[in-house]
Nucleic acid binder design. Structure first.
Lengths: 100, 100
DNA sequence: AAGATATTTCTAGAATAATGGAAATATTAT
DNA sequence: ATAATATTTCCATTATTCTAGAAATATCTT
């Protein structure tokens, strides 16, 4: 994928637009390529499992996060590429006019 | 202001996370420094006035848009600085780990 | 002052999202 | 097979957001 549609971009923005999810996403960004198991995220965020799971699944749905199973642990990874596309989308046309 | 809090960032992201508002915001970004009157935006977006006003006020609330009255016209302007802060926030720590 | 224009505020109904406990599923260990 | 662990799915409740008509406000024109 090389470019987001308005729909895709607004969906992703909406998912990042929740404090718990934004925090979760940043934890994963910070965790880098090794990612992080759900349990570790939960420890950092201090929310009930079902709530956390709900938020993770929303980030999964829009492709900002990916999960890989490792035994009984599910490891989550931030999808940097998606964030880059989103930022690209936000900056598009930003200089169609004058200085920016 | 030089840095957003998580709360501020998530509020702004939530407001951009709606297709009509994202579209509206991009129209203003594209319009550049001269901005655009509400009526002109309405013509481009084709939504009822009260709906448009609601969306504009949400963007105003988080500082992504600013309005200046010119007679009976209200001219809207995108606040690029805010978007830059937001993008900065999203990219923070992005390379705390390895390649990015 | 009255009328026209631009836009907002009020209001209410419909839709969507957030939260978290309890039950279900998947995997590993004994 | 049973138990233990990790996580999700189900469910119901509460809260928030969306939408748009109608009324209100602000400004300009005559």
């Amino acid at each position: 994928m090389t470019r987001l549609t308005l729909e895709q971009a607004s969906e992703q923005l909406a998912e990042l637009g929740h404090p718990t999810r934004l925090s979760l996403y940043r934890i994963l960004v910070k965790a880098g390529n090794r990612g992080m198991p759900v349990a570790d995220i939960q420890q950092q965020l201090d929310v009930p499992g079902s709530t956390l799971s709900h938020h993770i699944s929303r980030l999964l749905k829009v492709g900002l996060v990916v999960q890989v199973r490792e035994g009984r642990v599910l490891r989550c990874h931030a999808q940097y590429e998606r964030l880059n596309l989103l930022i690209q989308f936000l900056m598009e046309e930003c200089c169609a006019d004058e200085r920016c």
